[in-house]
Design a binder for these strands. Structure first.
Lengths: 219, 219
DNA sequence: ATTATCTATAGATCTATAGATAATGC
DNA sequence: ATTATCTATAGATCTATAGATAATGC
């Protein structure tokens, strides 16, 4: 019957998951090279041979850590749902952005592993790139696209047509500021200060749109 | 005579420097744990015992790498020299910021090691922190202070007195955006696109100031 | 018979040091 | 005598695998 198969599959899945959770914790603390098999066996309780049975190699295991921690993070990520019916006024744009950024911040606090490991991998410049790094970059490309689409939808129509590349630039700047803020959070930036800086980021991005709009009107 | 002493000191300094340069390259490519003694001996030409004679331990060596690469980077860092005679008008503020950020970007491109290794260390969360990490954070605190002072000097007086914490927040946001942009540069962001995003950052920060000023006037 | 885990270990690489040797300074 | 470098190696830790054992499914 399917029940026993399911139970076995469930146990297998559970072992995999435990190994990945332990590895994700360690990788977010110590980076790719610092994530040793010995540390994972200690924290997960499984012997090295089980890790190799499930994942084949350390490189593949860390790539799966990225994939797994991304899936854990995903439900906490804001949707970047463009507003119904296209363009919106300035205040509405600000409020949408504010609520999206707040949610993004919460998500990263609740599941920090994906971004922490991912940013460390992104900064690396090894001759042979870990599989996890390529995977992270691919996911980030998708994220940027979603953010760009939101900015396209929310930009005043005349600005959007006058400056076709602006939405991507805004998305990039938005992402860069969020990354940098996250990297500094918990060490350089006290958690209580995050909100104020995030609010300033909303005003800043909106102010940039206003400045570009004004410049276009002035030409 | 002092000449021979000098020559010896010079050779010693030269060995130290060669070791630090090799180590800085590797550390910026692979992070703290990836910077193995064996790799440094290969790239520098000196045996492991020479590294230990000069630096005592790997932890101390990497801390000196941070210190050394910072000193190499320092002359390329913009001064954040506040304008003579205090406050300036909006256009002048924008132009100063633009020129400072451009210079900061160039400096990071010419000597990327300090920021690359530093950000990787900053993201780590080891139980026992490497000495290099503490050193990087101390340097960054100084940098933030310098940036804050600039923002204090450049803010409209009525905004500065109405919102005493604003300058630090602007400095933090400025730093976060620069960090994030740097982390993405070369992989996610094409070098040719940096300028446009940086220009947008200038408009954004200035726009945030304008928005706060307007809000204060409106109260 | 297949799947998953265990113990045990191979062989490479890691940090660090001992002790010999060479170069410099007094 | 002091300073700096060399060769050689100790002992810990690294990734990975062989082969035995246990659990599950047919």
């Amino acid at each position: 019957m399917a029940r026993k198969t399911e139970r076995r599959n469930q146990q297998t899945e559970e072992s995999r998951r435990k190994i990945l959770e332990a590895a994700a914790e360690i990788a977010a603390e110590r980076g790719y090279e610092g994530t040793s098999i010995a540390l994972i066996t200690k924290r997960s309780g499984f012997p090295a041979s089980s890790l190799y049975w499930h994942f084949g190699s350390k490189d593949e295991l860390v790539a799966e850590v990225i994939e797994h921690s991304y899936r854990e993070w995903l439900p906490r990520v804001p949707r970047w749902q463009p507003p119904e019916g296209g363009a919106v006024d300035r205040q509405e744009r600000q409020e949408q952005l504010r609520s999206i950024l707040r949610r993004a911040g919460q998500g990263i606090v609740e599941r920090p592993e994906f971004m922490r490991l991912g940013l460390m991998l992104m900064l690396e410049r090894r001759a042979v790139e870990p599989a996890a790094r390529a995977r992270f970059l691919a996911i980030r490309r998708e994220m940027l696209e979603v953010m760009s689409d939101w900015w396209v939808a929310v930009l005043p129509p005349e600005v959007r047509s006058a400056r076709p590349g602006l939405a991507v630039q805004l998305a990039r700047l938005n992402m860069a500021a969020a990354d940098g803020l996250y990297a500094a959070a918990g060490t350089e930036v006290h958690p209580a200060d995050i909100d104020g800086i995030q609010e300033l980021l909303v005003l800043a991005l909106d102010g940039a749109v206003a400045a570009v709009a004004e410049a276009e009107r002035g030409e």
